[in-house]
Amino acid sequence: MLQLKKVESFYGGIQALKSIDVAVEKGEIVTLIGSNGAGKSTTLKSISGLVKVKTGNIVYNGREISNKPAHEVTLLGIAHVPEGRRIFPKLTVKENLLIGAFSVKNKHVVQERIEKVFQYFPKLKSRLDQKGGTMSGGEQQMLAIGRALMMKPDLLMLDEPSMGLAPIIVEQIFDIIKELNQEGITILLVEQNAYQALQIADRGYVIQTGEIRLHGYGHDLIKNEEVREAYLA
């Protein structure tokens, strides 16, 4: 479904990705783990077009998408939930959801998708007229995922959805990620919370200073000595 071939990207003048190879197959949950500044977010941003790719190819369903503008990449069915949620603080919850379906012209389809989001996140329903910025971190994360679902993506990329959230909320979010995957959405999950990510992932990549150190099945990586020492200690 998605292949990154020898991708190199620069971020703020520093080479953030050094010849990265990553593949995501349809229906999978793939996780990208690594410490701060390893290049996890840059990988997602390179895919969605927020960061320029210097060399290499990003191919999505047979199409070259590297260096396409972000709004065109997202139109192809790749939704990117950015790090830190990035809710529009001064838009209402409803507007935050509506903006996710910006390219959808049919009002009924938009309404259907909103209902669908409520199925996953019933809490949002009672908050529709509230400003996005006034919600708690967990609610904002749910809104951010809901907003991405409004695009009806085939591939959902999540950047650190567990960041700064209470363990019980993290649990909920991961449950929903699994549920979304069962409904056919392919997931590319970036996490610092390696243990939890590897538990739900089919496969995982370990990224370190812009290079892929290891990759393998989620349950193998969880047992891997190197991974245990560096990320699960």
Partner: peptide, 24 residues
């Protein structure tokens, strides 16, 4: 309006707006 909403979204966070299929 929809484009008005897009305008407000771009004003708040240009990068994220572009992730919402909005042509900034």
């Amino acid at each position: 309006t929809k484009w008005g909403m897009a305008m407000r979204a771009v004003a708040q966070d240009r990068e994220t707006a572009s992730l919402m299929t909005v042509n900034v």
